[in-house]
Structures are given as structure tokens and as C-alpha cells.
């Protein structure tokens, strides 16, 4: 894993995922370690994402590393029309590792092929966001004590939600029982279901949210965006059908935890926040430890 780019969660085997999660546990106990002293890590955000950028940069600085880069492409040579190829080659001559976020799908894979230093994909358009996936897996394992044989329910936009796709692909390595709750129009694509079938696992699909709540160990909520519906009336019909309210958790298991990649809009009612089953804010914090584990592994210092 040393010096290897992480572009897609598929780049890692089950064992490699577990190694990162185990190491992240160590960093959660001791996040301040001077193991990146003298190292330079580039943080290239070709599109702004404050949440992800702060998480990465905090992870790096707590380990004593130096950050160079930019928070948006507006003030850089990219806005003058420099190609991604040239930008990556230039930055790679200064940095030991590049963290990049880019609105174009496949940009991180391409960058990993032209860069002499490894790339961590912090999101390439609608394609992949593997560190979000790792932090979700970390959160699931931390709250359930295991990743194996869990009933995991995904709710909302399962068609376009890239975090859902990566999580399903990764959880297919862990004997998960999948439950998918969405409007018909936003069902999980067959290209993703293929991974479940190849792992000989089962899944169930629902349009009704209530019936699946008592079965779930994890409820992973996502936002349904208005622009996904060509017909605004169709959106109006479904927009409230997949909102989680506190009273709906009355018959849920004690161990169930509610996850969400954030930011949330209205798909989780604020009355859930005080419920101990709500885990989405802690989930986001786990991102720092997972990113520390990933960077330390790729840099070969752990």
C-alpha cells in the first residue's frame, strides 16, 4: 500500500481496508504524532469542499506534515487553462503526496498515471470518494463492533449517490445484508448490484421506509435532490416519504445507528439529533483518523 494511489475503494482488498481501519483506531487514541515531520503534502481542491479539505488538512497537520495547495481553482493557473496533466506534474515535483478533489470524473485516475507521487482521490465528480467510504466503514465498525453480517439500510437517492455506491461495493466484501429504500426512479443501478451478486449476498428493495427500520443495524440516509426529477410533481410526491423523524425509531433495535454523509438538508428531522442512535456528527469526526491512517500508510511511516 506504500506509495500506491487510492483512487477508488475497489483499489483496496478487504484486508487492506481492515488495515486502514485498525490503524485509524490507533490515531483516534493518539491523533497528535510527529511522523510526517519534513514531509510536504499537496491539497489540490479544483472545486471547493470545505468539509473534506479541513478534515484532510487537520489530519496532516496533527501528524506534523506541511500542506501546500489551493482551496479552489479560481486563483490558480488552472483558471488560465492549464491542463490537469501539467498541473499535476508541476505539483508532484514539490510534494511527497497529492490529495486532490476535481469536478471531472476519472480525473484522479488520470492524475495517478501522470504523477510521480501517489494520489489520494478526495472526490472526482460523481464518481468516487474513497475516504468518505473508509470513514463510513470505520463508523459502522466502531458502533457495531464488526463489519460482518450486519443489516445495512440505505435510504434516499440510491441511483446517483456516489457514497452509497462505494459503500455497497465495499460492504459486499463483508457478508452484509442489504436493504435499499428509495423511490422507484432512484433505485440502485444494476452496475452496483452486480457486486452484491458476485459476492453471493442478498438484498431487498423497498419503497416504504417504515417496514425496514426494525430490521436495521445501520440506517444510512442520503439526500434526494429536486433536480433529479424532470417532473417537479414527482419530486413533491416523494420528498417527504424518505424523511427520518425521531418517532419512527420507536421500534428500532437498540444498536441501530443513523449515518449520513452530510451536509443534511431536511431528510433527517432535527428531533433525531438528540437521540443516542444519531451518529452523523461523530461520523464526520472519524474522517480525520481514517485520513491519518491512510496518509501514514501511503507515506510508509506506519
Amino acid at each position: 500500500m506504500k506509495n500506491r494511489s487510492l483512487v477508488s475503494i475497489n483499489d483496496y482488498s478487504k484486508e487492506e481496508i481492515i488495515r486502514i481501519l485498525d490503524l485509524a483506531e490507533e490515531f483516534e487514541k493518539q491523533p497528535h504524532q510527529h511522523i510526517l515531520d519534513g514531509r510536504v503534502i499537496a491539497s489540490l481542491f479544483f472545486e471547493p469542499s470545505t468539509r473534506t479539505r479541513l478534515s484532510f488538512e487537520t489530519a496532516i497537520q496533527q501528524l506534523g506534515g506541511n500542506v501546500i495547495g489551493f482551496a479552489s481553482a479560481a486563483s490558480t493557473s488552472v483558471s488560465k487553462g492549464e491542463s490537469l496533466n501539467d498541473t499535476i506534474r508541476m505539483v508532484a515535483s514539490y510534494a511527497d503526496l497529492i490529495v486532490m478533489r476535481h469536478p471531472v470524473e476519472g480525473s484522479a485516475r488520470f492524475a495517478s498515471e501522470v504523477s510521480r507521487v501517489p494520489i489520494i482521490n478526495a472526490g472526482d465528480g460523481a464518481n468516487q470518494h474513497p475516504t468518505q467510504c473508509l470513514l463510513d466503514l470505520y463508523s459502522i465498525r466502531k458502533t457495531q463492533g464488526t463489519l460482518d453480517n450486519l443489516n445495512v439500510t440505505f435510504v434516499g437517492d440510491l441511483k446517483y449517490g456516489r457514497t452509497v455506491h462505494s459503500n455497497v461495493i465495499a460492504l459486499s466484501k463483508f457478508k452484509t445484508k442489504f436493504h435499499f429504500v428509495s423511490p422507484i426512479e432512484l433505485k440502485l443501478p444494476s452496475a452496483v448490484k452486480r457486486y452484491i451478486k458476485e459476492a453471493h449476498l442478498s438484498y431487498e428493495q423497498y419503497t416504504d421506509f417504515m417496514e425496514v427500520i426494525p430490521k436495521s443495524d445501520i440506517i444510512y440516509m442520503t439526500r434526494i435532490q429536486r433536480e433529479r426529477f424532470p417532473d417537479p410533481l414527482e419530486y413533491e410526491k416523494v420528498k417527504n416519504a424518505y424523511v427520518l423523524e425521531n418517532a419512527m425509531l420507536d421500534n428500532s433495535k437498540d444498536n441501530v445507528r443513523i449515518l449520513h454523509p452530510l451536509p443534511r438538508v431536511n431528510e433527517i428531522s432535527t428531533d433525531v439529533d438528540a437521540n443516542p442512535k444519531a451518529y452523523y456528527f461523530q461520523q464526520a469526526l472519524n474522517g480525520v483518523f481514517v485520513r491519518q491512517a491512510l496518509i501514514a500508510t501511503i507515506m510508509g511511516v506506519k
Binding site: 491542463s83 490537469l84 496533466n85 469536478p103 471531472v104 470524473e105 476519472g106 480525473s107 485516475r109 488520470f110 465528480g125 460523481a126
Partner: peptide, 9 residues
């Protein structure tokens, strides 16, 4: 929105 349609790849 694929990189192959945006860059010389």
C-alpha cells in the same frame, strides 16, 4: 464529464 472528454487522454 469524463476526463477523456476534457483532457488529452
Amino acid at each position: 464529464n469524463c476526463v477523456t472528454n476534457m483532457e488529452a487522454v
